[in-house]
Amino acid sequence: MTAHVTAPATALANQLPDWVTLLRAPNPGPMTLDGTNTWVLRQPGERLGVLVDPGPADAAHLDRIAAHGPYSVILVTHGHPDHVDAVPAARERLGAPVRGLVTEYQQVPDPVRDRTVLSVGGLTVTVLATPGHTGDSACFLVAGPDGQRVVLTGDTILGRGTTVVAWPDGDLGDYLASLRLLATYDGLVALPGHGPALADCAVAARFYLAHRQARLDQVRQVVAAGVTDPAAVVAEVYADVDRSLWWAAERSVRAQLAYLNGLEPQ
């Protein structure tokens, strides 16, 4: 039986590049862990930094963000409210453009595409389209002139536990493909949207892949036994998960059932 994962998927990072700063938003909860991670990237000696995921609309958090400015760009990993509700206020206060993966996200007037390369503040940022958690999820591969590289993983890989494939926007097939992509970044620190930084993005991605496949095998077995209602599948497969989180588990189950049936999100 595959157990509910609450621990980190790999060892924690014991050191971050000196151009990485974490500002954690004050919104802890079952789905946000310790709170949403806002990341500030600034090469020493550079005036302008890069802001990733301003987080929830919290005045004190925005004050902390502004205190670490100014910024050349605001990047968003995906459009969930706990990552982007602060975007309108941040854009107005900081005067920096907002860049994200898709035009459907209304706060991104100048969207980027997969493999877009941005040279900002002495850093090179490569956009990686990683749909699955949501349709608009992106990760950012960032390289500094010191040769160090990190991957900002948003909610595709978390610092603790596993993430939800947020059906119907999320898609399990896309998510597995995104994890296989992230599994190629061996030895790079992962800076997640929630939880602590992880020492190795690739190791975490491979752990996630194995866990997802194990859960999928469980769902196959339950469906073969005649249980097809999503809520009933949750009760069978996610019995070890706190009931307060079953609503989120049901979204993942719906994504799993669609994947097994070869269906596309509606």
Score class of each variant (00 low, 15 high):
L141E: 10
V108G: 04
L172K: 05
P196A: 08
G159L: 11
A224S: 14
P17V: 06
G132E: 02
D242Q: 13
A224V: 07
L181T: 15
S178V: 03
V76M: 07
T184P: 00
A59Q: 10
P196F: 03
D169F: 07
P131M: 09
A183G: 13
T36F: 01
C201F: 05
N14K: 15
G193I: 09
P111L: 04
P265M: 03
V76C: 05
R160N: 06
L141C: 03
D53I: 01
L172R: 08
T130Y: 00
A225F: 03
G193L: 10
H4M: 06
V253Y: 06
V52W: 01
M31T: 14
A143D: 13
T184Q: 15
L16S: 14
R254Q: 08
A248F: 10
L191C: 11
T184G: 06
G35I: 07
Q107G: 10
P70K: 12
H133V: 08
V223D: 01
G170M: 11
Q256E: 15
T124L: 04
H4S: 12
G173L: 00
T10D: 11
Q15F: 00
S137D: 08
V52D: 00
A210Y: 00
W246V: 01
A86T: 13
P88N: 05
L188N: 01
L23K: 02
V73L: 08
T163A: 12
Q15N: 04
V165E: 09
E250R: 13
L48N: 12
G159I: 08
G226T: 13
A225Y: 09
G262S: 12
M31L: 15
G154N: 06
S119M: 08
A258K: 02
E104P: 00
R180F: 09
R160P: 00
G100I: 01
L12A: 13
L41E: 04
P265D: 05
T10Q: 12
L62W: 13
V50A: 12
A225V: 03
A67D: 11
Q43E: 10
R47L: 13
N37H: 06
D171Y: 11
Y71I: 14
V98M: 04
L179R: 06
Y238D: 15
D53G: 07
L141V: 05
G100V: 05
A129F: 07
H133C: 04
H133E: 06
A225P: 04
P145A: 12
T130L: 02
L23W: 02
F140C: 08
P8C: 12
A199G: 02
H4I: 05
P131G: 04
R243F: 00
P111R: 04
A13V: 09
A138E: 01
A86Q: 09
W167C: 03
G95V: 11
A86S: 15
A67H: 03
A60E: 14
